[in-house]
Amino acid sequence: MQFFTTQLLNGLTSGVVYAMLAVGYSLVYGILQQINFAHGYVYMFGTFVTASLITSGCPLWLAIIAGLVAGAVIAIAVERFAYRPVRGNRLAPTVTAVGVGLIIENVARLIWTSKIRPMPFPFQTDIIRLGPVVLSPLQIVVAVVGIAMAALLWIIITKTDLGRAMRAVKDDLATAELMGVPVDRVVVTVYVLGALFGVVGGILYGAYYNTLSVTMGFSGTLNAFTATVIGGIGSVWGAFAGGLLLGVLQAMVTGYVSSALLNTVTFGLLIAFLLFRPTGIAGVHVASRP
């Protein structure tokens, strides 16, 4: 029971991180029906800005804000130069996205080298005992941030003018323009929101696992992307559900089956969903959900 609880908490923690990273895919796909292949690189860069500032002694809050700003700025640039010129085209954005992704990664390598780096963060070595279960204060931070970010996203999407405009653009981009909706700005905002969630996810990742590498933009994305597909690509609530489900499943497979099967299970799940249930767990068609 204690072991089960520990693994459940481990799974939920990584699940929240996956969910944060997955939002950037789901939001963009949900609204523009486009897989945001540059996402991983964008949040990697923002996270590295935060990590390097923390390392150089900058106050934590400032480092986090700087990382978020960097992520947002890069997302704006990527949207402007890689996506907007080819909007509406099915294949071209994939190519341009991978292209800018590689540019971002190489710039990151130039600045921070390819070395894997730690990310100092408060509470990293503290533990809390709840009976026999050992908990990290950072797990509480991750949970609180995860819940707060989910609530924030829910409010933005369902309650604000911007969220309404985002959903309108998703339903019918051309008519949204006819209504005077500044579609270009709404689209940029979608990318920026995705990037901000990604950077938050990246910072939680760096803080909790104390390890960052510039390759996280590519390899670290597998889990986030799998979570997106499990939840139903295009559904931001699905991204959260998929993230938590994947995290817990991985922890349980590791705990009760074998750590050797972990990637097999993850890839298997990804492929199985893509083949047999491309609409994800909820099984609702993309076009009808926020």
Partner: peptide, 21 residues
């Protein structure tokens, strides 16, 4: 004996829980 895929994860919490157990 716990394993991981190098380069694909930095999350060792679950394998470490197994080792501790």
């Amino acid at each position: 004996a716990e394993t991981y895929v190098t380069g694909s994860t930095n999350d060792f919490s679950s394998v470490l829980a197994n080792i501790a157990a």
